[in-house]
């Protein structure tokens, strides 16, 4: 599976990105900072402060700003630099801006794409956004194509068909009342992340069991 830059890719579970946190994510070899303000949605940025290249995933959040750990440069949610502590009275020029990527939260998964334009396929559409429960993210030491193949042939228990809902996302039906959506995210040539969410009346109560079966799937793929 190639990572098409114009393809929306699930890169994290919304539920696991804490309020006031910045997190490192690698997508197709590119380092991203996935962060959330004290309230509000998750943002996906290039993991690099434009000042001296420090990774913004090491940064800290104050209100709805992300601050670089190195010199405290402060960025608004649109990437614009608002403050430079070394020069407290200076209004930072508009040209100082962190690079941002589009991000959408749907079905409990944070999606992004490296091509910032409006080209390419839309987000997977599985109906209304409500009712999806997080399961867990998994990080598999294998390339994306064998992981995807294993996912299409997996058995998460009493399982129905697995179908692709996008080039990089699959839906697994387990019995009549449980659907699991798994977003596949190529970190690099050797590592693939899976982000799983579930929907249905049993989704919340089955979460721990589903997480264990996905861990087993991960371990099986790595053994193969």
């Amino acid at each position: 599976m190639s990572v098409a830059r114009e393809l929306w890719t699930g890169v994290a579970l919304d539920d696991q990105i804490q309020a006031a946190s910045s997190n490192p994510v690698i997508l197709d070899g590119q380092a991203l900072a996935v962060w959330r303000g004290e309230e509000g949605p998750v943002r996906v940025w290039e993991d690099r402060c434009p000042h001296r290249g420090m990774r913004l995933s090491f940064g800290f959040v104050r209100g709805e700003t992300l601050r670089c750990i190195y010199h405290g440069w402060t960025y608004a949610t649109d990437g614009q630099c608002l403050a430079i502590p070394a020069h407290p009275t200076l209004a930072p020029p508009k040209t100082i801006c962190a690079s941002t990527y589009p991000s959408e939260t749907r079905y409990g998964i944070v999606w992004t794409k490296l091509d910032g334009g409006s080209n390419g396929a839309a987000l997977p559409d599985l109906g209304p956004d409500e009712g999806w429960e997080p399961v867990r993210s998994l990080f598999v030491h294998a390339a994306a194509s064998p992981v995807l193949e294993a996912l299409l042939n997996c058995d998460l228990g009493q399982q129905g068909p697995v179908h692709m809902v996008a080039e990089n996302a699959a839906e697994v039906e387990i019995g009549p009342e449980l659907r699991v959506l798994v977003a596949v995210h190529a970190m690099d040539d050797e590592r693939t992340a899976l982000h799983a969410v579930a929907r249905g009346p049993r989704a919340a109560s089955e979460r721990a069991g589903l997480a264990r079966r996905l861990e087993r799937l991960r371990d099986d793929i790595e053994r193969a």
Partner: peptide
């Protein structure tokens, strides 16, 4: 910690 997490590592 800072030094090992600047990108790129090479100096522009």
């Amino acid at each position: 910690v800072i030094l090992e997490n600047q990108r790129p590592a090479l100096l522009p």
